[in-house]
Amino acid sequence: MEINAKELTVVFSRDGEAKKTALSGVTLHLKGGAAAALLGPIGSGKSTLLRTLAGLIKPTSGSVTVDGGEGPVVLAIQEPQRGFFAATVREEVAFGPENLDMEAAEVAARVDWALTAVDLKKERWTVSPFQLSGGEQRRVALAAALAMKPGFLLLDEPTIGLDGPGQTALITTLRKIKAETGIGLLVASHDPDFLFSLTQRVLLLVDGRLAADTTWGGLVEKVDTLRAYNLELPFLLSLLYRLEAAGAPVAAAQESEEQAWAELNRFCGERMKGGSGP
């Protein structure tokens, strides 16, 4: 599945308020089976872009086309628990598939699969979603999105309210689902470490415009641009960048978390063997 966004512009106008341009001429090509990060300062248009790609907002000009593949484009919104309405967690997750005219047995199988995938304790499946903690509610909301078997999943700040183990479980789940189903992912977050562990491509949105379309290694070269917008590199890349700048024999431009760890381990290993210092 592919999503093509061409020259997307979104202007919000409300009575009594000045018009606000939320997106301005954004052109994007997103491929299935790939994971991209959406970075940007607060209010830069990240949520608007996700909503427009999901078809929830009609662009003022420009177009979004979805080609090939099976399954819908599904957006998991910020604070998804605000949309909960069902009496139990199972019913909440079943609501989407039930509306696809599926057999009851198939709905049940999807619900089991989705709730297992997000690692929610089984004794919580039959309680009211409103009785769950914030982190558990995030998992239910993700399960509800996954139960739709999306071809493309758009996630808006998926780590809000998740603790460390919850974030690790989310990364494992999304990686597994991507490998098994070939789903495409676009993830907006203010947590560069989370994004670094999940994605390869990086889209930087500033004032509604696409300021960079690069990789994590490429982002290291744009560190001055990031700082100008008060944004940060992922911790591991920032550490490598600082070491490289201090004259240490390391290469900062690493493309993935695994590669960044390998480079740090190699550097530390050589230091242990008595390599030279500054």
């Binding site: 607060i42 700040e157 203010h190 917008y229 008060n230």
Partner: peptide
């Protein structure tokens, strides 16, 4: 309660 969620480094 989790005040830094959804904030960029500037905020």
């Amino acid at each position: 309660d989790e005040p830094l969620a959804m904030l960029d480094p500037g905020a």
